[in-house]
Design a protein around this nucleic acid. Structure first.
Lengths: 109, 109
DNA sequence: CTTGGTTATATCCAAGTCGGATATAACCAC
DNA sequence: GTGGTTATATCCGACTTGGATATAACCAAG
């Protein structure tokens, strides 16, 4: 489609990271939870999407996230870059526009 | 991703048809206009998406649309089916949820 | 009427993306 | 130390996309 450089999966991941850094598995659960179970990222899509976002400079790896959580050597934490935040914001604004259009068409109340 | 059976392109087309029946080219312009130029459907994506929506029973062809417009033999008009309207509504509600989450994360104002 | 730009639909291909399966292993409670 | 959950990684076949190409109806200008 032209628009942003984001796929739907990419946007969901960025949105999950907008609040605070997180590791892959936490992103997966966040996406499922915030969508009310409607959106589920399988491991393939999840980790493939993360590497794409890394390569595109929208996300970066960070040393350790939540200091309250017990250390787990397997986890890899990610956070948004400035470019990632900008891309997520642009996409969210586009979505808000779509929701408005849907409302005007009487699709949703 | 799991969620609905809709691709992003599919949703844009359904949204364009939510107001009133339209033909392919009009859908294309609607999508571009309502997104402020951010989303452009090329002919490949447009007509392929329409045939998929037809096959899935979300859209149906209708004899002629706008009676005010001059007749043009090339045009093929489409309108939402009930299933299509339901799918579009479900997707719009999911999007509204995402926009809310983006707001809570401070991504958009 | 014919020429040229726009509108309109349709199909093809290479490239990109996805879902789900499979693999591996650290973690933790019992 | 065993078993279920958490966690990351990669592979494959299937599906989707972007952009090019093709074809032709429409219509205004000359």
């Amino acid at each position: 489609m032209v628009s942003t450089m984001l796929t739907t999966a990419g946007f969901h991941v960025l949105l999950a990271l907008a609040g605070e850094p997180a590791h892959g598995y936490a992103i997966m659960r966040f996406v499922e939870q915030v969508s009310g179970g409607a959106v589920k990222l399988g491991p393939g899509t999840l980790y493939r999407t993360i590497s794409r976002l890394l390569a595109d400079g929208l996300v970066e790896e960070t040393e350790e996230g939540d200091p309250a959580a017990p250390h787990d050597a397997r986890r890899r934490y990610y956070r948004l870059t400035q470019a990632g935040e900008a891309a997520a914001r642009a996409e969210a604004e586009l979505m808000a526009r779509m929701v408005t259009a849907a409302r005007e068409a009487g699709l949703v109340t």
